[in-house]
Design a protein around this nucleic acid. Structure first.
Length: 205
DNA sequence: AAAGCAAATTACCGACTCCT
DNA sequence: AGGAGTCGGTAATTTGCTTT
């Protein structure tokens, strides 16, 4: 086996080849996931637009290709809790909340995928609002700070796709040219071979 | 040492509900 | 009606261990 790190495990301690790894372990697909850069962009976007303002984030084109569901899920990870409603509209640093949540422990703290999940059923409207007021006091960044945040803007994925298709087309043309050249050369060899004296041709028997 | 099994963990999907 | 939030379930991945 060659010493190539697994595609399915792009990071982490497991991103090495161990002598006792079976081949099947490496034959798996890359999960979409998020890169560190994308996470940082989302973090800034949440700060700038407020948690839950997904349409504004999408319109800003700072995270092309990401759906609302994906962003919500990633926000849960950053916050360290499943319920995001209590942060709705708040301009916060999700990592700060996540850091505090990661330290929470006790009988009432149930985690799933490292995120604290609600154990007492769905939160009532009033409870959500109460928590939101508390979170605003604790975590919201100053208006002048979040207003000055500048987000990167990426190309529309469909435009990128078109560009890649054009590249592929050009490469195919190039490949055809090379193949044609090789075929011409091969034909030239046959002609030269045919012109050689009979005794110099290699016998197939 | 290599291969493989099984449990634990993680990432994601889809159904359902609520809200505007 | 459609967007958004929550939750349960499941497929995929990771890791520790045993067997060959």
């Amino acid at each position: 086996m060659s010493a190539v790190a697994p595609r399915s495990m792009p990071t982490g301690q497991r991103n090495v080849v161990r002598s006792n790894d079976s081949a099947s372990l490496w034959n798996c697909t890359l999960s979409p996931g998020w890169t560190q850069d994308e996470v940082q962009v989302l973090r800034k976007a949440l700060m700038k637009f407020g948690v839950g303002n997904w349409m504004k984030i999408i319109e800003s084109e700072c995270l092309p290709g990401k759906t609302i569901a994906q962003m919500n899920l990633q926000t849960q990870r950053m916050l360290g809790q499943q319920s995001t409603a209590e942060f709705n509209g708040l301009h916060i640093d999700a990592f700060r909340v996540g850091e505090l949540n990661s330290q929470k422990q006790g009988e009432g703290i149930k985690r799933k995928n490292n995120c604290i999940v609600n154990t007492g059923g769905k939160l009532g409207r009033e409870e959500v609002e109460n928590r939101r007021v508390k979170h605003r006091e604790m975590f919201e960044v100053e208006q002048q700070v979040w207003k000055s945040i500048v987000l990167p803007r990426f190309d529309n994925p469909l435009v990128v796709l078109d560009r890649k298709r054009a590249e592929l087309k050009a490469l195919k043309v190039e490949l055809d040219d090379v193949l044609a050249l090789l075929a011409r050369d091969a034909a030239g060899d046959v002609e030269q071979c045919a012109m050689l004296p009979a005794g110099t041709k290699r016998s197939r028997e």
